[in-house]
Each structure stands twice: as structure tokens, then as C-alpha cells.
Amino acid sequence: MELAPVHPGDRAPVEDEEGRQGERLQKVLARAGVGSRRVVEDMIDEGRIAVDGKTVLVQGMRVDPRTVQISVDGSRIEIRNDRVTYAMNKPYGVITAMSDDRGRATVGDMVGDLAKGLVHVGRLDQDTEGLLLLTTDGELAHRLAHPSYEVSKTYMAQVSGSVPRDLGKRLRHGVELEDGPVRVDSFQLMDTHAGQSVVELVLHEGRKHIVRRLLAEVGLPVTRLVRTAVGPVQLARMRTGVIRRLSRAEVGALQELVGL
């Protein structure tokens, strides 16, 4: 679908505290790391940049970075500097909390004073490892964790026993648990050896211990569980305990996923 061009008169101007009408688009995108101002100007000439869903075809446009949505080559770019989002590879045994009055190791201990107002997005069980998102953006955290937005999570599970041939079909159809049915979006057997199997599941459920309870229900108790993705964000090769700041493109993809 072709996007309509934006012209300077298409929207009401936004003035900053000195009376200037916003910031030049080139400056905003250069600060966001998209490229130098000259590179951004070339991208505008090529029709690769969109503001609020409309392709920008003129140079010198001013925007309010607090409110606009900017996309480059169709991918949303996070341009605000007052919000940060991180990915952590949470180790086994660490609880998902910013503090704990019982003296247990927490996610909060690991992040320290990395960013003021940082909160974890949802939870991982103490004995579950892998990808945990943390952000200073409260609305993003709320939407990513809320069931109504159906954000997919990918898990790699090591289980005891052999995987039946028809298990993927059964899990996609749905399994009844004590608190209601659960279905996976996808299921794949990754490996099997010496009475142990490794399986990958994608689901958008957020109920407590849902993956462990689901696999136990079908006769495959979990011996190790790692979350490898949340929506478009991948754990990839992050080492245990490592924290990295998400790129602006990754944050933009998360925002787009939950309608921000």
C-alpha cells in the first residue's frame, strides 16, 4: 500500500519552549542513530521515511518527538530519549522482583541503579531462565504484560521422556488445565537423547507456571526452562546475567506490536 505524502501544511505546528515549531526531522533521526543528517535527507528524498503513517517527501519538516510516530523502511523507530528498555538473560535462581525482604537474589540486584524507574515486564519463575524485559515506560510494560494484547513468548524446554508424534497437534488444539484450557501457537521437537527431549513452544499465555503445568499435563515434566523471545525481541546469544539496551528499532517494534 502506497503512503500519501506529507506537506508542511498538513498538521498544526508544535512549538517548543522558545517558540520554535518542533525539531527538524533530520535532527531527530540523526539523534536516534538512523544516520547523519545528510543520510537522513537522502532517505527522505527516496521516500523511505514516514511520519504518523504518511511518507515524507519534503525536506525541513519539523516534528514533536514526544508525540509523533516515525518509521524508516516500514519499521517503527523509538525516538524519545526519556524512556529506556533493556533485555536481560535472567539466571536460574533469581526472582523477578526489584527487591526482596527475605534476602534472595533479585532482578533488582542485577540492574542496580541502571535507570531510574525501571520495572520488569511480567515475570519469570525463580527456576526459569532467559529473556526478561525491563523498561522505564510504564504503558509499554503494562501492554506487553496484559493478556488482551496477546504478546507471544517463545520457550525452550528440556523435558523427561519421549515426545509423542501427535503432541504438537494436541497442544495446538488445546489442553484442559485446572484453571482453563491452554493452546500453543506452535510446537517443535528440537532434540532427543538418553530419555530427555528438548522442545520449543510459542504461546501468548501469561498464567503462572503455564509452560511447566502444560507439559506436565501431557506427561513431560520440565527439567529446564528458558524463555528465548518476547514478541520480536530475541535472547539470541546473550550470556546468562547479561543486560543489554534494546535498539530503537526493537523498541519501536514492541510499541507497534501493542498499539503505541
Rank of each mutant, 00 (worst) to 15 (best):
P181Q: 06
E139H: 06
H142G: 02
D82G: 11
V107H: 09
K116Y: 00
S186C: 05
S75Y: 12
V182L: 14
R20A: 13
M61Y: 07
R212K: 15
Q158P: 04
D113I: 06
T96F: 03
D64R: 02
R212S: 09
P13E: 14
D10G: 06
Q26V: 08
D166N: 14
E205G: 11
R143C: 06
A216E: 15
G60S: 04
L144Q: 01
R123Y: 06
S197P: 00
A12G: 11
G93Q: 05
T55V: 15
E176D: 13
R123V: 10
S75K: 15
V184L: 13
E150T: 13
M156R: 15
R239D: 10
G161E: 09
R24I: 10
H209P: 06
I77Q: 05
V218P: 01
S99Y: 06
R102M: 09
V233N: 06
M1E: 09
Q26C: 04
H173V: 14
G33M: 12
A32K: 08
G108S: 00
Q69P: 01
Q196W: 03
R38L: 04
R66E: 12
V39C: 05
L203C: 10
S197H: 03
L132D: 00
L29R: 05
I77A: 04
K208N: 15
L140Y: 02
D113F: 01
G35A: 04
T240I: 15
T192I: 11
T228L: 12
G180N: 07
D113L: 08
A229L: 06
V258F: 02
T223S: 14
R37C: 07
L114W: 09
V258T: 05
L225W: 00
L29S: 02
V28L: 04
H204E: 03
L246Q: 12
G108W: 04
K90R: 09
L133G: 07
L260K: 02
R24W: 02
A50P: 10
S152D: 15
P221D: 12
G112K: 00
V121M: 01
V218E: 01
L114Y: 05
G47L: 10
S247R: 04
G259A: 07
D73R: 14
Y155N: 02
R224T: 03
A194L: 13
Q234E: 15
V226Y: 05
G112W: 02
E46A: 15
G9M: 00
M88I: 13
I243F: 00
V28K: 09
E256V: 02
L118E: 09
S247T: 15
R11F: 12
Y155L: 11
R213S: 05
D73E: 15
V40Y: 08
Y86I: 00
R62G: 00
F187G: 08
L29V: 08
A145H: 08
R237Y: 07
I77K: 03
V14C: 11
T136R: 03
P13V: 03
E176Q: 11
D179Q: 07
M238I: 07
M156S: 15
S71H: 14
D45G: 10
L189T: 14
I79F: 00
A194Y: 13
M156P: 01
H173G: 13
G252D: 10
S152W: 11
R207W: 01
L171S: 09
E256I: 05
G60Q: 13
G161D: 06
L144K: 03
A229N: 10
R239T: 08
A87Q: 00
L167E: 01
D10I: 07
V199H: 10
Q59A: 11
G33I: 08
L132V: 06
G219K: 12
Q126K: 15
D10A: 13
Q21F: 11
